[in-house]
Each structure stands twice: as structure tokens, then as C-alpha cells.
Amino acid sequence: MCKVNIYITLKEAVLDPQGKAISDSLKDLKYEGVGDVRVGKYLQMEMEQTDNMEEQIEEMCKRLLANPVIEDYTYTIEEVV
């Protein structure tokens, strides 16, 4: 069994008003060094290990998990004993 970690973020070109509000709030708390904040999603998925696993994850991301019009995705695969 594997654990797949999927990270979905808004594309660079897409404005993220939520991230902006968080960044402003952190600055209000006097964390002066804080720059842009982008809010995304983190999915943990259990998956049985197969030969075409990566291909399947790519497909899942494109078809459902991320919207390629506004979002980018990355993922890592961990083996779980």
C-alpha cells in the first residue's frame, strides 16, 4: 500500500484573495518578512501499488482532483509498510 500526497495550488496567473487576506493578517501580527501567501489543497490518498500508478494519479488530477484551467498540482508517493 502507498500513501499519495497530492498538492493542488492556484496557478501563478490566478489571483488568490484568500491568500492576500492571510498575508495581510500575518503582517498585522508584525511578521514583517511575510510576502505572498497562496492557499491550496492537500490530499492524502491511500492507493495500492501498481505499475501504472503514476499514470493513474496524473489522470485523476486532470479529470477530477485539480481544475487545469486555474490549478496546478504536484504529488509524491510514499510506500507504507
Binding site: V14, L15, P17, Q18, A21, N67, V69, I70
Partner: peptide, 9 residues
Amino acid sequence: GAMLRNKNL
């Protein structure tokens, strides 16, 4: 296209 959160959230 796609939908995003309203600008004022």
C-alpha cells in the same frame, strides 16, 4: 473557463 471565490470572499 472556471469559477473562483468572489473577489471579496
